[in-house]
Each structure stands twice: as C-alpha cells, then as structure tokens.
C-alpha cells in the first residue's frame, strides 16, 4: 500500500477546513443561546422560534420559494425543448455556435446578466408597457433565463447517451410522433428533467445579484433580505435562517446527484456481444 504523505494530508485538511469551517460555525452558532454572535451561551432553539415570528422574513422566504418553483418549472420545460431541438436538428447550420451560445450564460458574470435584463425590462416597459413595474414577475423571468442554460446542459448529456432506435422502434410499432414523445422520450429523459429542475430550483433560491437588479419595490427575496439585514449587523437569527437554507440546498443537491447519477435506463444496451 502506498504511504500517505503527511504533507499532502495537511494540505487536504486545510483545504476542506477553508471550505467548511465557516459553514459549520454558522450552523453551530444558530443554536447559540446568547444574543452575542461571537459568544457561546449554551444550546437553544430560540432563534429558530423567533424566525417564525418574523413576518418580513417569512414573507421573503415564501416569495423565494414561489419564484424558485415557478422558474424551475418553466426553465425545465424550455430547456428540455431547446436541448431536443439542438439534438434532433443535427443538420442545422451553425449548431455548434448555437450550442455554445446556449451555455454562455453559465460563465457570464451575474452583474452583466442582471444589468442587461434590467435594461431589457425597462425598454420593454417603455415600448410595450409591460412589465409595468418590476417585482416577482421580472425576477422569475430572469431566473428562468439563466436556469434554462443549466437544464439544456443536463438534458443534452442524457440525450447523447440515449439509443435513438428506441424512438424509431416505438414509431415502427404504431406510435405517432406525439405518442412516442410521451411514451418513450419523456420517460427516458425523466432523470435529467428532475435533476435539471432541482438544479434550477437551488439556483433560483440562492440568487442575490440578478434578483437585486431586476427587483422592484415590495419584492424582496430571502437572499436579498438576509443581505440587507447583515449590513446592519449580524444577528443570531440570520444564523438560524442560513442553517435552514444550507440544509435545504444540501438535500436538493444530493437528491439531484442521486437522480442524475443513477444507472438509469439510458440506452437499450446491445446484447452481450458474441463475435462479430
């Protein structure tokens, strides 16, 4: 067996500490009985209890959830359609350019995405009078646009691994194109659709920068509220809400990983090959 180098182990430990110590300390201090954030005052759930009484916070949380659910649903549907189109129309001129362009938002700085969407909404309001004001709707639209890119990537990976003769076989057996789509294509893509949805959901729930750009008066999402609160000083209830978000995100990301990584029925594996 290879001997583990102590040097290497130290570096690894340091790296993980850098990543997780801040998160773990937030979680621990969320159970702190003391009003002072830096002083341990015994175990308590009082900050979780105080969250329930905070109307602003609950409102923001509900708004964030609503936006996340709606935008994830639309992003999944649109992203799947785009992925299918890019996959099917393989003789489409400029497919490489198009598929590059669809994934560009993944690496685009959020500031730029946020700013350009804000400009779009303002000029749309000027030109066609919609959206009349910015708020939950504009945030949802903004979230759909950037989440969609992630869904396209996930769904295309699944499509690339899918045996196309499955759809042909269904058609050969009398399935019309629409029936084949729902009988074969959708079930085959289901793991990708679910993980795409979960990914979009978390992205939307986390987003601060783009939401801040396209939001208007009266629409404050949870990250926006937390950010605003922290600027006035960190209070222990922030630790509690943060812990809840961490738990939620961990659960969803783990679920998405399990679903998309499951050795799902991607292709009808060619039978145990004899000789050819």
């Amino acid at each position: 067996m290879k001997r583990r180098s102590p040097m290497l182990m130290t570096i690894v430990a340091f790296g993980y500490a850098l990543l997780y110590v801040p998160i773990v300390s937030v979680v621990i201090y969320s159970f702190n009985g003391s009003r002072l954030v830096t002083l341990w005052g015994g175990f308590s759930l009082r900050w979780y209890a105080s969250l329930l009484a905070d109307k602003d916070l609950l409102g923001a949380a509900l708004l964030s959830l609503r936006i996340a659910i709606v935008s994830a649903t639309f992003a999944t549907a649109l992203g799947a359609i785009v992925a299918l189109a890019l996959h099917r129309v393989n003789r489409l001129r400029g497919r490489l350019l198009l598929s590059g362009m669809i994934t560009a938002p993944l690496v685009m700085p959020e500031i730029i995405t946020g700013l350009s969407l804000l400009f779009l909404f303002i000029s749309m309001a000027d030109l066609i009078g919609w959206p009349a004001s910015r708020g939950a709707t504009t945030i949802t639209i903004a979230h759909i646009t950037f989440s969609m890119a992630y869904v396209v990537v996930v769904v295309r990976a699944r499509l690339a691994a899918m045996d196309e003769s499955l759809e042909e076989a269904a058609m050969d057996l009398g399935g019309r194109p629409v029936a084949v789509f729902f009988d074969i294509t959708v079930p085959m893509l289901l793991p990708a659709l679910v993980s795409g949805w979960l990914l979009s959901f978390t992205l939307s729930l986390d987003d601060l920068v783009i939401s801040s750009f396209v939001s208007g008066p009266g629409a404050t999402t949870l990250p926006m509220l937390i950010f605003a609160k922290v600027r006035l000083g960190v209070t222990p209830d922030i630790n509690a809400i943060t812990t809840i978000i961490i738990a939620l995100v961990v659960i969803i990301v783990v679920a998405a990983t399990i679903i998309s990584g499951r050795r799902g029925p991607v292709a009808a594996r060619p039978a145990d090959a004899g000789g050819q």
Partner: peptide, 20 residues
C-alpha cells in the same frame, strides 16, 4: 406512408427494447 401506418415491423439490431 409513415412508419406507424405501415403493415411492416422491424426488429432492430440493438433490439431497442424500452428499458422502462
């Protein structure tokens, strides 16, 4: 005539069994 209306069926080389 499209494949779904032909009195013809095909057994695929990969068999193309629906895995779900």
């Amino acid at each position: 005539v499209p494949p779904y209306d032909r009195p013809v069926n095909l057994m695929f080389q990969s068999y193309a069994l629906f895995p779900h």
